[in-house]
Design a protein around this nucleic acid. Structure first.
Lengths: 214, 214
DNA sequence: TGCAACTTAATTGGCGCCAATATAATCGCC
DNA sequence: GGCGATTATATTGGCGCCAATTAAGTTGCA
């Protein structure tokens, strides 16, 4: 409508997101150094833009900056991981109420699709496939919390916890449980049961944290 | 202890914090343009560092970047302000429980001091004095939530909401209420009443939001 | 006098060069 | 042959220049 808040997609912003995606896709793994020359070639970008993008990601804590050494994919320690998990727990369970009131049937249908896609990925997909489908599912769900800032904050935290060396789904059993929980979440959404939705989300996050230690 | 996670204070990071502080102190007001040449002189920094610092603040959403126009102090709209408030509400009330269990007498004594300093600032200080003392009070309190990530997240949101054009304490009456609430929070801390602490925090945030509209 | 086109001034931002630094390789000594 | 010192190589990062862009100022015309 108005030209007020037009989001300007600068080169560095786009590049930062591309690199962030590559990190999610495990092209670059936690602890790995991101050499500027490689990035220049891979993304066909100028050196300056690469540096800007890396700086942006460092501010977002996706990567870590070591002066005169460069940038590497953040490798978060267990303590920080637990802290992120706890903070996510607070925000994600709190958003359940708003999601339940705002969600519509069309969105639930899209979630249904993604839940099935996840079931499929569990059987024949790669870890990355599973992770991306799972991401898409939650992206739709949280987009209905009706609070852009809350949404951003949740995703900032989720992206940060990617830096964990431990795999998110440690066992195949936990993958199957995540799978079932997607359907359980949708059931809670259909009957507009905020408490139930929050409970499923909490259970999911708790489980992930516990498997780590065990 | 270990040299592992040594926080490196680069020039740009220090400068970014200095500029952020200047914004908090209302040296630069919401909507105002930050000219790079001015910043160079004021902070005795090289142009490149100024630009890096501005980029960092833009990523942190403290300022806003308009290509070929420059950077200006973010001027958040009412909707975003409300969203930040709602998110803060979630996080800050949720941290009450941990604060209550972790706080010690020495910290409460320091809070007592700051609460008195605030009372004093209400009577004879400037808006900025009041704001900074208030900030110090909450900084100590939230530092006892035992979760560095949660703490960071809370402060990121608080700093973002500074960009609001509306004054935080609209009336003198609301200032007095904030003043009283500091003592009420300490009382809750002394008797280890998490519920009460959360309630005071919630009341404070709700009130601030309501005065805006009214 | 008001408005539009043009000129001038101020400001931002892309970019490449090279010095500073870290890492790897080589060499020499024990 | 192992290990420390030294040289060579690779990589990062500070910085200044100038083109591109925008804003301000000025002139001319209706």
């Amino acid at each position: 409508m108005s030209d007020r808040k037009e989001k300007v997609a600068t080169v560095r912003r786009v590049l930062a997101n591309e690199i962030a995606q590559a990190i999610r896709l495990r092209v670059y793994r936690p602890g790995e150094w991101l050499r500027q020359i490689d990035l220049e070639e891979r993304f066909q970008a100028k050196r300056f833009d690469v540096r800007s993008a890396l700086e942006e990601l460092a501010v977002r804590k996706t990567i870590e900056h070591v002066p005169n050494r460069g940038y590497r994919v953040a490798e978060i320690d267990l303590k920080t991981y637990e802290e992120i998990r706890a903070t996510r727990m607070i925000l994600e369970t709190a958003s359940a109420a708003a999601i339940v009131t705002n969600i519509d049937d069309e969105a639930i249908a899209r979630l249904e699709e993604l839940a099935r896609a996840f079931s499929h990925a569990v059987r024949e997909g790669t870890r990355v496939d599973q992770s991306e489908v799972n991401r898409a599912f939650h992206q739709i769900m949280y987009s209905f919390c009706g609070n852009a800032v809350l949404e951003e904050t949740i995703w900032a935290l989720r992206d940060r916890s990617r830096g964990s060396r431990v795999t998110v789904w440690a066992s195949h059993e936990s993958l199957l449980r995540s799978d079932r929980e997607h359907y359980e979440m949708m059931e809670a959404l259909r009957v507009r049961d905020a408490g139930h939705l929050a409970a499923v989300i909490a259970r999911h996050l708790t489980r992930v944290g516990q498997e780590e230690r065990g």
